[in-house]
Design a protein around this nucleic acid. Sequence first.
RNA 1: CGGGGCGUGGCUCAGCCUGGUAGAGCACUCGGUUCGGGACCGAGGGGUCGGAGGUUCGAAGCCUCUCGCCCCGACCA
Length: 488
Amino acid sequence: MANENEIPDFPTSITPQSQDFGRWYIDVVRRAELADYSPVKGCMVIRPYGYAIWELMQQGLDKRFKATGHVNAYFPMFIPESLFMKEAEHVEGFAPEVAWVTHGGKEQLEERLVVRPTSETIIGTMYAKWVQSWRDLPILINQWANVVRWEKVTRLFLRTTEFLWQEGHTAHETAEEAEEETRKMLGVYKEFAQTELAMPVMDGLKTESEKFAGADRTYSIEALMRDGRALQAGTSHNLGQNFAKGYDIKFQARDKSVQYAWTTSWGVSTRLIGGLIMTHGDDGGLILPPRIAPYQVVIVPIPRGNWKETVLPKAQEIRDALTALGVRVMLDDRDSQTPGWKFNEWEMRGVPLRMEIGPKDLEKQTVVLARRDTREKSFVPMDGLAPHVVQLLDTIQQALFERAIAFRTEHTSSTGSYDEFKATMEGRPGFVISPWCGSATCEAEIKTETQATIRNIPFETDAVPMAGQTCLKCHAPATTLAWFAKSY
RNA sequence: CGGGGCGUGGCUCAGCCUGGUAGAGCACUCGGUUCGGGACCGAGGGGUCGGAGGUUCGAAGCCUCUCGCCCCGACCA
């Protein structure tokens, strides 16, 4: 059924990935109308098409949070300075990048307010009021919010002064429960990224130097972008009793003693959109996995003769049939653009499947389906079309995931030789798994010399015997394996 | 925060060196013919050249200051 229609090169203002990946990324974001620069320094505008992707992410995540027992709430974006300052490590980590509110109207405030860079402090304060007894635990709350971090350098979706995210904040009775929660939510992120975004991720533990300011342990999921660099796509923190002590979250335990609660926090942000773009996109622009695509199918009618009386009604009928099956469809019936223009436009915007329908199709009772991922075109009978499309979308979702896995596999290696490691980190590096002694000094030196950082430490390591293995850098006995990569 | 680059119709840019009162392509509006891989013809609209000051008979252009943005490095979701 598939034929080999050549796709001619078409003029495009998107820089090829091989020429300049960073430029390619910006071009795609802007040309696909995902986001635009705003008049506010470091802040972007998320345009409707980009926001639609975020809404789908929100739905997919929110469903999973609810399914694991969490509820949503909302806390203020302003945090009084005195409150913010209570957890020392946290302050040290975030103080350099917080925005301050100093005035209300013309009046100088008695106490400055921090615009939240994250909400552990304000939420911890509230939890302290809400928790008296072990019966009040656990508290499993998530918040969808914006946060502000005064970054020096910004990049659309990946790093902006203000960004959207969700932050889960939980409080538990025991250390074990908190650890279980921390890992469970990392698992939720991993499953979400792989199932919905078709984005394979490495999960594991962050090193001491990379963990969240104020956490005992930070876990992350790390994805590999098509330029061979890693992107931290989500984090889950076990905060131990650090914030409970700083914010006085105490309860009377089952044994009548008074205990500090064990808290966690976890978050993913609109950065995931950047990850999505750089995981799947090609020189034609965006490629969206069907499950996260605002439009899964675009129908392009071929306008000829009295098409508005013949082709268009059929196109509408097909659209309605697809919509009835839950497919997100765009019928592009604009007569201001030619079909060829629309083909390129919607490909550039990443729509997984295009359907062409014209007079010839009406005669033959078929339509043309063109896949964005493989660019294959096929003729498909109108009879049974809608279920066929549903199935094909599923196939595309799967194919994209497999392709991403294959790419990551090609760009993943293992070495204990520092020379080999350095060679790999030139060009389009990817992930390298290597033995490490656990010292921050080696970690820092490796970073200085190669720009590569430890993304995380794989869970499987627990079971791997490290005897006889020596650190990549210093050759002291290794304590663990670690995933290294250059990162965003 | 260090280094580099750039601000001229909506967008990308030319013009600046060598001052003489603003252009191209795309986009947009109207009319018509088209439409199965970025159509064509015709007619139009739109810019106090980032801002301030200076030099000059005259400044987009030269000088000074200033603001903003982008890129590359050190820090971060």
